[in-house]
Computed example of a mutant assay.
Amino acid sequence: MSSSTRRRSTVHDVARVAGVSRGTVSRVLNGGYVSDSSRTAIEEAIREVGYVPNTAARNLVRQRTQAIAFIVHEPHALFLEDPNIGAIMLGTNETLSEADYQMVCLVVDSDRDTERVARYLNGGFVDGAVIVSARAQDPITKAVMRLDLPVAYVGHPPDVDAAWVGVDNHGAARAITSRLHETGRRRIGMIAAALDRDSGADRLAGFTEALGADFDPALVEPVPLYSYADGAAAMTRLLERAPDIDGVFAASDAVAAGAIWALREAGRRVPEDVGIVGFDNSTWALRTTPLLSTVDQPAEGLGAAAAASVLAQLRDDEPAARTGIMLDTPVVWRDSA
């Protein structure tokens, strides 16, 4: 018989060769308990007959898809530009892959995307979701809550009782702003990105707290996205409004890189005239001249921990799944300040 028409090996074949019942083979395939001798015999039989589990059929019986959604609420262009999103995605995928789960990437860039993704989730095509950059009153969050889908957020969205993984954005922003202040800067501004989500709002709060009496609200320039273009435009506006500015906390490394470009275009030296710091310790921090002082946000670790939380929920490990997890964010001091 040719290889193209060769009969597919079945559980019955494995049971016959191993000398055990079909039920014993099924328990091994589904992670159940059997004796060590039976397990060894079954594993050897699987190799001998070339058995490949029918994952689709098993999942149908278990009502599982073996797929987890990775949902990002950012414009498509920023999804490609922001190395943090890529690192979070890699961390998520590695953890899911080790557990034999497939990651399904979904980017929400418009109201139409929101409706499409909500319909997709409602269709039962995934077992759970990791959600990045969720906003307050987010329609996707509402859909996930309505479906009671196992979920973990990267960041801590407001008014949501769900598992989350994040960093102390407030404390880290306070720490790096204080370090910048200690260099002798007195007219310190902030390019405050993404104030509609917890990370952006918390970084602004930490910046404000660090400066205390030296905080000047006129030196805060809000922008919608953690993007290079927003950083460049905001820095230009800050220079027009406050030409004596001598320090800047940019809410992300990409924002800081854009700000450094704008400062150079305006004839300002970094750090001699203006000290600048960022947040993330992403690849952007190593592309700038001078190299960027920043906060080290463990992006891959965030993704890995979020994926592990979703998997814990699928195992009904509720105490572990519902715990908010905070990862460390040390300051990395380089030449930009």
Rank of each mutant, 00 (worst) to 15 (best):
G91W: 09
W333A: 10
T289Y: 13
P157S: 06
A193M: 06
Y101E: 07
A56Y: 05
V20M: 09
F207H: 10
A173E: 00
D36G: 02
D148V: 01
D335H: 08
T114H: 13
D253Q: 02
A172T: 06
I42C: 08
R8T: 13
A259T: 02
E115M: 01
Q313A: 14
E182I: 04
F125A: 14
P330W: 06
E43M: 13
V107W: 04
P271S: 07
A320Y: 01
S293A: 06
Y51M: 11
G301R: 02
M89F: 10
L211C: 05
L292W: 09
N169Q: 12
A143T: 15
N59S: 14
V220S: 14
V20H: 05
D273C: 05
I42A: 08
N169E: 12
F125C: 11
D13S: 12
L149A: 01
L60M: 11
V28L: 13
G155N: 10
A118Q: 08
V117T: 11
I85R: 00
A194I: 08
V151I: 10
G278N: 10
L225E: 05
D280Q: 07
E300Y: 11
R7I: 14
I276N: 05
A312F: 04
L314F: 03
Q313G: 14
Q102K: 13
R237Y: 07
L291C: 01
P157D: 11
A210R: 03
I188K: 07
E94Y: 14
A305D: 07
I140N: 11
L96K: 14
L60R: 00
M89E: 12
Y51K: 08
G91A: 05
T236C: 06
Q63E: 07
V165R: 01
R39N: 04
G200K: 07
A201Y: 10
T95M: 15
A250D: 06
A250K: 04
A136I: 15
T5F: 05
I46H: 12
A69M: 03
A232E: 12
P222H: 02
A87Y: 07
R179L: 15
R6Y: 12
P224E: 09
W261R: 15
T208W: 10
A87W: 04
A193C: 05
N59E: 07
S4C: 12
R186P: 05
G155Y: 01
A299M: 09
S178T: 14
T95C: 14
L147W: 02
A172L: 08
A56Q: 09
G267Q: 15
A250P: 01
P158G: 02
A307H: 03
L121G: 13
R27I: 02
T236G: 15
T183L: 06
R8M: 12
D159W: 04
R315P: 12
V14T: 05
D244R: 12
